[in-house]
């Protein structure tokens, strides 16, 4: 069947069986490989995408379920050649090593600071607790999200001024 989604702001369609997992739809049918598969059992979050702004695990969502909905993947974070603050944060604070969990972590982080612009360290750790990173020990991921939150705050202040 034909499935159409709003992918990173643009309408995208492809033919897929009803059993097609959203992550496979994105990777195989739409050819976007920034969304990864890490565990198959919805434990690791490497497949995280935003569904109408909220992070979900695309290995445990059917593509047909999101017909007509808004999906954001890592490829949609940077806008017009400008990095999203979460991307800048991950680079500046060494929030990534192998990079495999990074797209999911950044999307969760971006949604987190969108909902809670000034998160505490505990709120960040709780917020990313559905995503596993095997390399960083999370210390610098927390800093990366704090970095992005601070950059957002600074930009908002600048915007007001």
């Amino acid at each position: 069947m034909k499935i159409t989604v709003n992918m990173n702001g643009a309408e995208r369609s492809a033919e897929a069986e009803p059993r097609t997992l959203l992550v496979d739809f994105i990777r195989t049918k739409l050819g976007m490989t920034g969304t990864h598969i890490g565990c198959d059992t919805s434990n690791c979050g490497a497949c995280t995408v935003l569904l109408d702004g909220r992070p979900v695990k695309s290995c445990t969502v059917l593509a047909v379920q999101v017909e007509g909905k808004n999906i954001t993947t890592v490829e949609g974070l940077a806008k017009g050649g400008k990095l999203h603050p979460i991307q800048e944060g991950f680079h500046a604070e060494h929030g990534l090593q192998c990079g495999f969990c990074t797209p999911g972590m950044m999307l969760v982080g971006a949604a987190l600071i969108e909902a809670n612009p000034h998160p505490t360290e505990d709120e960040i750790r709780w917020g990313i607790s559905g995503n596993i990173c095997r390399c960083t020990g999370y210390m610098n991921i927390v800093k990366a999200i704090q970095h992005a939150a601070a950059a957002n705050a600074a930009e908002n202040i600048a915007g007001v001024a």
């Binding site: 490989t33 598969i37 890592v74 991307q87 680079h91 990534l96 990079g99 797209p103």
Partner: peptide, 21 residues
């Protein structure tokens, strides 16, 4: 030094084996 390899990963452009088609 901030890492030289970061750019491709934060853009979702890392190239892992499963990305080879």
């Amino acid at each position: 030094l901030p890492r030289k390899e970061d750019a491709r990963f934060i853009h979702g452009q890392g190239h892992y084996v499963d990305d080879v088609v």
